[in-house]
Computed example of a mutant assay.
Amino acid sequence: MPNVSMTVNGKAASGEVEGRTLLVGFLRDQLGLTGTHVGCDTSQCGACVVHVDGKAVKACTMLAAEADGADVKTIEGMAAPDGTLSTIQQAFQDHHGLQCGFCTPGMVMSAAALLAENASPSEQEIREYLEGNICRCTGYHNIVKAIMAAAGHDVSAIAAE
């Protein structure tokens, strides 16, 4: 079996993988990083979004071997080492951008990628960017509000739903 090595959340990680091992499986099963969720296995839901070399990637569509040598960031790597939530995570908490929480890791990782590309997206740009992420609980309103708040927009006039 081939060996893969990568940096995950700032730490070296490696392991033997079968050729068919998906990145999401490697992260969850071999590294114990279960914050990256498996929602559909078909690249439809976005619950498995991670960053690979700074780009948002659905980890259920990438083989672990393809990430060999890459810098991977998961939801576990978003908070500061002392546990302080990132700006995006705090905004999701403050603006009730989650309910059951299943989609939340993928939403947060997608939001971080969006804000890295566009520091001040409009509501429409946020909604378009999140098209690859499915939330079955919230209706997206508070998720969008949280991302707008994380981007520094005044959301005080937007009612909570």
Rank of each mutant, 00 (worst) to 15 (best):
I88M: 09
V72Y: 00
T87A: 15
A64G: 06
M78Q: 13
S14E: 11
G15M: 07
Q44A: 14
V72K: 00
M62R: 10
D53F: 15
L85Y: 15
Q44P: 01
T36S: 14
T7Q: 12
V24K: 02
A59M: 13
G35R: 02
C40E: 04
A12I: 05
A47W: 11
A56I: 05
V8C: 03
N9I: 00
T21V: 09
T34W: 10
A13G: 03
S86V: 07
T7E: 07
E18V: 08
E16Y: 10
G25I: 01
L23N: 03
D41P: 13
S86L: 10
K55T: 07
A80Q: 02
V24A: 06
F26A: 02
V49E: 05
L63R: 05
T87C: 03
E18G: 15
G77D: 02
A64R: 07
T74V: 04
T7F: 07
L27Q: 00
V50Q: 03
A70F: 14
G54V: 02
A65V: 15
S86M: 11
L31Q: 01
T84R: 14
K55R: 10
A12T: 05
V38Y: 10
T74S: 01
P81L: 04
C60H: 10
Q30W: 09
A67V: 07
C48L: 11
Q44W: 05
K73Q: 12
V72G: 01
A70V: 04
A80C: 05
H37K: 15
V50Y: 10
Q90T: 03
N9E: 01
L22Y: 14
L63F: 15
T36N: 04
D41L: 15
G46F: 15
S14F: 10
T42V: 09
E66A: 15
